[in-house]
Design a protein around this nucleic acid. Structure first.
Length: 486
RNA sequence: CGGGGUGUAGCGCAAUCUGGCAGCGCACGUGCUUUGGGAGCACGAGGUUGCGGGUUCGAAUCCCGCCACCCCGACCA
């Protein structure tokens, strides 16, 4: 199955979601495979989407008092191994440099899978007094995790991300920082990418190796599977103890600081594709769309072309001053020598929110035909007033994308009480299932083996509700979120 | 790691069984005609048939070895 009409097509979302995803990523020119297995080449259109969410998150990070820094790509083996749970969790995924400068290295160098270890070691001299705290740092970098099964953007051996690392004098302060990080992710996901998320705590089995606890935001893709979209970790004093970081507190006692770390990666580009896309390709929220409006000129004769060009030129002059929620309006007029139909498909595949068709009939009427990508709704609009209306129209569109995702999630979330009902629901309908759980790893494992679903998180906003665990019937305090996940 | 499959132009494939000029569609270049939902015609460019070895007058095709990738399982999260 494929989209209608002649010309190249993409795999139908309904028939084969992974096939659809791959086609969209490749055909919309977001990314390519690389000569290195599991690694990806991010192309200009894909990188522009990443830059938009990166820049927005960076604003949140700086607004909340963090400074950007840089630490090395290489982590000495001895440092990576200091925190026992950490090294055990990452060991199979670490890539090593064993040879350099023409000889075997005395000490292997890990290519960072994450930077907790090297940062803890590096900052121990910076932290002497409670006056040196909190230390709030953030890195934008690349990391390598040697994944066996990779998918463009979603899980690649090398990926781009941001990792915040902070140190605090008290546990309460560190706990508040974990919330700060997660709130930044919620804001970027929901307000910028129009992806509604469930915030919650990870189960013991799913938390970050070396963390005391982990929080995450979880999003629903359009195949109803879950995607972890950002994590924020309470590291407690684990890494501080491993690296022997101590500070002298107000009470003249030497103490280990409490740490946090939180990360958000290029996986979110994949989330944006899968949370909004449809049979025609990408559907991008205006805030991240590299182009928010595309203008398609239509003409037959040279005489018509001149008239259309004049009208568009006049319109473009007014567009130059338009400011949207994500900065100056980003638009493009497509003058390529292709048919209008070709261009419609081309820009729909790329998810451009608004398309303005301008032909001879329109010019005669002083209007254009504005078409919304999300529902192909067509509307004649006067060219003279369009520029002034665009910020509002784009804001409305952004909200419509979010609302549609919210409705989709609601329609695919069920509250169930038994393992049989959960299995039936996961296998037949997919989606999210809210079910009571006693808290034991054994019952968590039992659900996973029976259904393939995992506990995505223990949601913060799930109401306290006494019940019985869906596996062993023991008392449960609240419902947790089960789903099959990427 | 086990089982199965596939490697031929940028992409998708045919030719392999039965050895005999390496082809088709899309994409790409030029020209003309076109342009309100993926335009048409003509001409053109593009190849170490995954790599190495063997058999043969002759190998994409047969034989041996290697490599890569995909699917299923296992493992991991």
């Amino acid at each position: 199955m494929s989209t209608t009409g002649p010309g190249p097509t993409i795999t139908s979302q309904a028939d084969d979601f992974p096939g659809w995803y791959n086609d969209v990523v490749r055909r919309a020119e977001l990314a390519d495979y690389s000569p290195v297995r599991g690694c990806m080449i991010i192309r200009p259109y894909g990188y522009a989407i990443w830059e938009s969410m990166r820049d927005e998150l960076d604003r949140h990070i700086k607004r909340t008092g963090h400074s950007n820094v840089y630490f090395p790509l290489f982590v000495p083996k001895s440092l990576l191994e200091k925190e026992a749970e950490h090294v055990e969790g990452f060991d199979p995924q670490v890539a090593w440099v064993t040879r350099a400068g023409g000889k075997e290295l005395d000490e292997w160098l890990a290519i960072r899978p994450t930077s907790e270890a090297i940062i803890a070691d590096s900052v121990k001299d910076w932290i002497q007094s409670y006056r040196d705290l909190p230390l709030l740092m953030n890195l934008w970098n690349n990391v390598v995790r040697w994944e066996l099964r990779t998918r463009l953007f979603l899980r690649t051996a090398e990926f781009l991300w941001q990792e915040a690392h902070t140190f605090h004098a008290t546990e309460a302060e560190a706990a508040a920082e974990v919330d700060t990080g997660l709130e930044a992710y919620r804001a970027v996901a929901e307000d910028w990418l129009a992806i509604p998320v469930v915030q919650g705590r990870k189960s013991e089995g799913e938390k970050f190796p070396g963390a005391v606890y982990s929080h995450s935001i979880e999003a629903m893709m359009r195949d109803t599977k879950a995607l972890q979209a950002g994590t924020s970790h309470m590291l407690g004093q684990n890494f501080a103890k491993a690296a022997d970081i101590r500070f002298l507190d107000r009470d003249n006692e030497r103490k280990h600081p409490w740490g946090t770390s939180w990360g958000f990666s290029t996986r979110m580009v994949g989330a944006t594709i899968m949370a909004h896309g449809d049979e025609a390709g990408l559907v991008l929220p205006p805030n991240v769309a590299p182009f928010q409006v595309v203008i398609v000129p239509i003409f037959r004769s040279e005489e018509d072309r001149v008239k259309v060009a004049a009208a568009i030129e006049q319109l473009e002059a007014s567009l130059a001053d338009v400011v949207t929620a994500s900065g100056p309006l980003r638009w493009k007029t497509d003058w390529r020598e292709e048919t209008p139909g070709f261009k419609y498909n081309h820009w729909e595949l790329r998810g451009v929110p608004l398309r303005l068709e301008v032909g001879p009939r329109d010019v005669a009427a002083g209007q254009g035909v504005l078409v919304r990508r999300i529902d192909r709704h067509k509307e004649p609009v006067p060219l003279a007033s369009l520029a002034a209306e665009l910020p509002e129209r784009l804001a409305t569109y952004q909200q419509a994308v979010f609302q549609r995702a919210l409705d989709f999630r609601a329609a695919n979330t069920r509250s169930l009480d038994t393992l049989d009902a959960l299995r039936e629901s996961i296998e037949v309908e997919g989606g999210f299932v809210m079910a009571p759980w006693c808290g034991s790893p054994e019952c968590e494992q039992a659900v996973n083996e029976a259904t393939g679903a995992t506990i995505r998180c223990i949601p913060f906003d799930s109401p306290d509700e006494a019940g019985r665990c869906l596996v062993d019937g023991r008392p449960s305090e609240r419902r947790v979120l089960f789903a099959r996940a990427y």
